[in-house]
Amino acid sequence: MLKPAFSVRRLGQRYDRGEVDALVDRIIAAAEHRPVGPDVTVDDLRNAAFRTPLLGPGYSAEEVDNFLAEAERWLPGGQAAQGAGTSAATPAPGVQPAPLFNTVRLREGYATAEVDEFVERVMATVNGLPVSRPVTAKEIRGIQFSSVRLTEGYDIEDVDLFLDTAEGWLS
């Protein structure tokens, strides 16, 4: 199996090349049945998180995400092994997937802990799961997160776009 050739970007949504390369090497080794470390699992792919390079180039986030979704089919327990299973890229009908936000450091972003807590409540509400305080469309319109600079935060535009979408789900 050939290693994928991801586009290298200096700006925009990108992932740390070293972190991506390490996971891709494990995926290829698992697909070729030649372990080079801990076995990589479908859950590893679905929960993979990579840093965004502070300065300098990184791999195209979209290309890496598409590769990981495709790679699920090659691993034990993946879509091919399960038949009509679901993946992070294709959630079960009627279930909304949790969003992934880009992180920022040098420019203003939203505090990650606050966003994570609120998004968890939003997703539970939208997907009909038990939640202590269901979120309303009105609450989404009025939410304000703390801003951070020089520490890792979520990209403001990404979070705001998600909130617009979530408000539509609840309206």
Rank of each mutant, 00 (worst) to 15 (best):
L150A: 10
A137C: 07
V42F: 04
L2F: 08
R51V: 03
R10G: 15
A48N: 09
T90F: 12
L106G: 11
D21G: 07
E62Y: 04
I140P: 05
E62A: 14
H33G: 03
A81N: 08
W74N: 01
A5T: 08
L170V: 12
A61W: 02
G142T: 09
I27A: 06
R14K: 15
E108T: 05
I28G: 00
R17A: 13
R133C: 01
S60E: 11
E108L: 08
R51F: 06
L2V: 11
P35T: 11
T41K: 06
L106I: 11
E114C: 02
P91F: 04
T151H: 06
G12S: 12
R26T: 05
D155R: 09
T151G: 00
W169R: 15
L106Q: 12
Q13S: 14
E114A: 12
D160E: 15
A31P: 00
G37K: 09
F145D: 07
A80T: 10
P91E: 04
V126I: 14
A84F: 09
I140C: 06
T136W: 10
D25Q: 15
G83S: 04
D116L: 07
I27L: 06
E114T: 06
R141M: 10
A84C: 04
P4G: 04
G168P: 00
T165C: 07
S171Y: 12
E117N: 09
N102E: 10
R73G: 07
T52L: 00
D16Q: 07
G109M: 07
T103G: 13
Y110V: 01
A31M: 02
N66H: 06
T136I: 05
F101L: 02
N47T: 15
V126L: 05
Y15G: 07
V64R: 12
D158P: 04
E117V: 13
D160K: 14
E72L: 03
I156M: 13
P53W: 14
L68C: 09
F162V: 04
G168F: 14
S60W: 01
Y154E: 03
D43Q: 08
S7E: 10
D25K: 15
E120P: 00
A30F: 00
R26Y: 01
L75A: 10
R9K: 15
Y154Q: 07
